[in-house]
Amino acid sequence: MHKLIRRLIATGIVTIPRSVPERFAQDAYESSRALLRQLGRALAVRHVDAGSCNGCELEIHAVNNPYYNLEGLGIHFVASPRHADILMVTGPVSRHMVPALLMTYEALADPKRVLALGDCAMGRGIFHANYATVGRVDAVIPVDITIAGCPPPPAAIIEAFLALIGTSALA
């Protein structure tokens, strides 16, 4: 146990706001306050993989690592769509995932927002629409915000969340 504690102390706090531009830290602070004003609690996100290559999922894992620490901004991922404010969808929407995607969307309580993550979800990835793939998320459910990239880097994902909160789009 002493080794574990020593390691914890040696690692220290590694989350980026210390090393990123002032603006980012400021935004994060403002966003947490805006969240409290608008929701009175943390923002809950449910993710659905609609046929992604797993690249976007790797970056969703990364935003939750101690370096980016998304949860520290009051944004966390939840297991049930019933607990979520935002549905985050990745992938070009394989047709086999359409029923599950629609059911998950329906299960979110109103008001809800949909975030399409990555080039594929936006309809500009390498998997074109074909017999097995719809080709984009907004052909199946309405999309409120998109994040480009293959996959989008963690900073882009965090900035999109901050923008979403900053514009009071959640109200």
Partner: peptide, 14 residues
């Protein structure tokens, strides 16, 4: 499985 089937072999043809 096959929920993520995207028709990749067909896509390669194009």
């Amino acid at each position: 499985l096959a929920y993520a089937h995207k028709g990749v072999e067909k896509r390669f043809e194009s």
